[in-house]
Simulated scan of single mutants.
Amino acid sequence: MAGTVILTGANGSVGIPAAERLLNEYPQLTCIFTVRNAEKVDNNTQNLRQVIARCPDAKASIYQVDFANLSAVHEFASTMLTAIETGKYPALRSIICCASYWNLVGDSELTTDGYDKTLQVNHIAHVILVLRLIGSFASDGRIVLFSSIGHYRKPNAMTSYLPDIPDDIDLLNHPPSGKDKHDLGFQRYANSKLVITTWMYPLNRYLQQNPRFKNITAVAINPGGLGDSRCFTTNTARSTQLAQRFVLKPFMSMIRYLADPTFRSSAEAAVDVIKLAVDKAYQGEQGYFTLLQKDDSDPITMDESVQQRVWQKSLEWAKITKNNTALKNAIE
């Protein structure tokens, strides 16, 4: 099974073990790893390089792509298009959209593109990659999007504010500010996951309607509660960091047994992600998954009118037109 796999956020908590599984279990694949900072001063990227170095036969490259800059994402997509067209890299087998961001200690941050940073990094940038590169996929490629249990519009221990998709979707890029930095920050994160999950459904529909792409499928995975994730130490309050250090990590197995059966390590989540992305057993799967089990996403994600509003607005945000995607039947 030859082909190219693009893994975004490859130096993250799930990204590094996912990269390691790809390199060790699928050495025939060409792996493209994107990171925000590819410099040697970035310890996380150095850890990724060490993983690659332990696989001397690996066909792997690291690209620096800042998902908070859509011009950089478009430029990377153009680079990949040319590399695949000229035979430098084989056709795509999968894009794994692992890059993620949240800020639980501050108000919404606007990127230079004018979008909420959480929404842009988690969703809009990946829309660019998927739709710009869809014509470079093998006939039976796969797209793995990252959702979360937080996308459900029901009470969540992380926030007192429920996620939602407003009638005016542009409001997601101008979320409210307030004293509850943590709760509002998690709501922005949950909103992005709700949008991602909703977007996945029309993506599959348009792919199936196109004879060229009918065997390419997309899934949105809730990878579970990741007790060892570095996200708990980034843009979080001291209390959250201490909770992870003294409760979440040391008692991970107990929490999984007593409270949350999806609570687990990032390495465990990486196993499922790679299976969904390239394992033959999951060929043709689409829809929402909790771990490796097909599941029901929030009811609003199944509303086709909401799906279409999310789809159209995502095209606008990502600047996707008939001129820069092969999925032309999806562009009005």
Rank of each mutant, 00 (worst) to 15 (best):
R188V: 05
T198L: 12
G185N: 15
I169N: 01
A91Q: 13
D168F: 02
A157Y: 13
A99M: 03
D140K: 15
V195G: 12
M200C: 10
I128Q: 00
P90H: 08
I95R: 03
D140F: 09
L171G: 05
G178T: 07
S139P: 10
G150A: 14
P163R: 00
V105N: 06
L194G: 00
G150W: 08
D164C: 08
I134Q: 02
E109T: 13
L92C: 01
Y89T: 13
R132C: 14
M200N: 07
D167G: 10
P176Q: 07
A99D: 01
P90C: 08
D167C: 07
Q187M: 15
G178S: 04
S94D: 03
S147L: 04
E85M: 09
R132S: 15
R142V: 05
P166N: 06
A99P: 05
A157E: 12
R93F: 08
N204W: 02
L131M: 10
R153I: 11
F146L: 15
V195Y: 13
K193Y: 00
I165V: 04
A91F: 10
Y101I: 04
N204K: 04
I96R: 12
G185K: 03
T198I: 04
P155E: 03
K88R: 13
I149K: 13
N122Q: 10
L162Q: 08
L194E: 01
D168W: 06
L171S: 13
I124Y: 04
G135P: 02
V121M: 09
D167A: 11
A157L: 14
A99I: 01
C97N: 12
S139E: 14
K179E: 11
W102R: 14
M200S: 08
A125N: 06
G135A: 04
N173M: 02
L110K: 15
H151C: 02
S136D: 07
S147G: 15
D140A: 12
A190D: 13
L92Y: 01
Y201S: 09
P202G: 10
I124Q: 01
S136V: 11
W102G: 15
V130R: 00
I149W: 11
A157F: 14
A91I: 10
Y152V: 03
D168P: 05
C97L: 10
S147N: 11
D140P: 12
K117F: 02
P155G: 06
T86F: 09
G135D: 04
H182Y: 14
T86Q: 13
D180N: 02
L131N: 04
L171E: 12
S177I: 05
V121D: 12
S177D: 11
S160G: 14
K181L: 13
S160P: 10
K88W: 06
Y152T: 01
G178L: 01
S177E: 12
L203I: 08
Y101Q: 04
C98W: 04
Y115H: 12
G135E: 06
Q187G: 11
A190G: 07
Y161R: 05
G114S: 07
S136E: 10
L203F: 03
S177W: 08
K88E: 13
R93L: 03
I95L: 06
D113S: 07
D170L: 12
L129Q: 04
A125L: 09
V121E: 06
K88P: 07
L203D: 01
G114E: 02
L110E: 12
